[in-house]
């Protein structure tokens, strides 16, 4: 039928793995933010949810790194991480290979995307699903933008992918939801883990909620790396989601939570 839901959220593994190490009011605020996002998502009665993430070498490595990838399986497993480390139980997630094929065919009209009949989920997808689909009932189509192994695709191509996903979603009879996952400024898995530039994040979220294409695409990777860390490269997933939705965004929750290593964010965007 069409794209029926668009949102973005954080996927940092500390959100679940180090849940108890954050101040309680911040932890509770974030968890409530995910819960509101879950309600908003489910209210749109999606037939399938595309989770567009920036994975961390669960499937893709520098031997053969696609800038963009979409899953095309009937089932996916995750998390790939040690269960005690991430504190998310293993699950097999339902996919829909036939629907994936249709969407991928449409995306390929404008953006070259790799397809994957196998895909293992890491925290980039599992942390959002843990909150948005706790009972494992949704049909999931995974997507990925390489934000880990430079050279990275430019921001304007992330925008193009978002537009292509929108055209694809609008071309199928199913109700499609889209959630982009990643961080804004952060330095995860470095000794600086916990460094967060709140002002940078709020400026980015301001551009994002206004869906200001020019402002969103004006960052250079050099600037992002210097000001927002290597984790900041993940803004690509937020940018693609904005391109797909086309409307105005609304931040549900934002707060820097250093022990979770990111400015924890949940936000939704109108479909326009």
């Amino acid at each position: 039928m069409s794209l029926v839901f668009a949102g973005v959220c954080s996927h940092a593994p500390g959100i679940t793995g180090r849940e108890d190490r954050a101040p309680k009011e911040l932890r509770d605020g974030l968890y409530a933010g995910y819960e509101r996002m879950r309600e908003d998502l489910w209210a749109t009665k999606p037939d399938a949810l595309i989770v567009l993430a920036a994975e961390h070498f669960a499937n893709f490595f520098m031997d053969n790194m696609p800038p963009f990838a979409l899953g095309m399986g009937d089932a996916y497993d995750g998390p790939i991480e040690d269960v005690d480390w991430l504190r998310i139980p293993k699950r097999t997630v339902r996919g829909d290979a036939a629907l994936s094929q249709k969407l991928i065919k449409q995306v390929l009209q404008t953006v070259d995307v790799a397809y994957c009949e196998e895909w293992k989920f890491d925290h980039g997808i599992m942390v959002p699903l843990h909150f948005l689909d706790p009972d494992n009932r949704l049909t999931i189509i995974p997507g990925n933008i390489n934000c880990q192994g430079p050279p990275l695709t430019p921001l304007h191509r992330a925008w193009a992918l978002g537009e292509a996903l929108r055209q694809a979603a609008d071309s199928v009879p199913q109700r499609i939801a889209l959630v982009g996952t990643g961080g804004i400024s952060h330095w995860p898995a470095t000794p600086d883990s916990g460094r967060i530039d709140e002002a940078w994040d709020r400026d980015f979220l301001d551009r994002w909620t206004r869906n200001d294409k020019a402002a969103l695409l004006s960052y250079t990777d050099e600037q992002t790396y210097a000001e927002a860390g290597q984790g900041g490269f993940e803004i690509r997933t937020f940018i693609a989601t904005a391109a797909a939705a086309g409307g105005q965004g609304k931040v549900g929750f934002y707060a820097p939570i250093p022990i979770y290593a990111v400015g924890c964010t949940t936000a939704t965007m109108e479909i326009a």
Binding site: S193, G194, R195, P258, I259
Partner: peptide
């Protein structure tokens, strides 16, 4: 790369 001083502790 490290962006703070080796003696600093940011979080955790």
């Amino acid at each position: 790369a490290l962006t703070t001083s080796p003696d600093e502790k940011v979080a955790g």
